[in-house]
């Protein structure tokens, strides 16, 4: 992974947590602690780390008040061969797997993270409550 390491990403999430507004504030402290805990064990999220080509495990959770889901797909569609689909409150988030096994999404395109769940959480952080609009 490039310079933006997992720990930098956590720093970013912490910075964001400081600046988000009242609707999310109550949820931030607990969810952020949860985020940090999971991120420290991110390799347990699935087989997404370090070039494994198997699809990561499915996930379904509420993160900072948003439902995030991810699961492997049967190819085709508009996933460009990603073989994995991620949703935020039911709307698909376009995600992509890099050659080194890291992940990005269209919401956070230039900052790879280790798993699709981490990409979904980064998208929720970035969206600050906004809804995704359908793509392509």
């Amino acid at each position: 992974m490039p310079d933006l390491t997992r720990r930098h990403a956590l720093g970013a999430a912490a910075a964001l947590a400081v600046t988000v507004g009242t609707p999310l504030t109550a949820a931030v402290a607990d969810d952020h602690a949860d985020h940090a805990d999971h991120a420290d064990h991110a390799d347990h999220d699935g087989d997404a780390g370090h070039g494994g080509r198997q699809a990561p495990r499915a996930f379904d959770e509420v993160y900072r008040g948003r439902r995030i889901q991810g699961h492997a797909t049967e190819g085709g569609g508009h996933h460009h061969g990603a073989g994995y689909a991620v949703f935020v409150d039911g709307a698909e988030l376009h995600v992509m797997r890099n050659a080194d096994g890291s992940w990005i999404s269209v919401v956070s395109h230039y900052a790879p993270v280790s798993t699709p769940r981490a990409a979904a959480r980064a998208a929720v952080d970035e969206l600050q409550g906004a809804r995704l609009v359908p793509f392509g």
Partner: peptide
């Protein structure tokens, strides 16, 4: 481009944030 190493171009997108961090930069 920044996918490897010290990271130049990608990092600048991330530093600016907002739409610059997204596909519609």
């Amino acid at each position: 481009e920044g996918w490897r190493g010290v990271n130049l171009h990608n990092r600048v997108h991330v530093w600016v944030g907002g739409q610059m961090g997204t596909g519609v930069s």
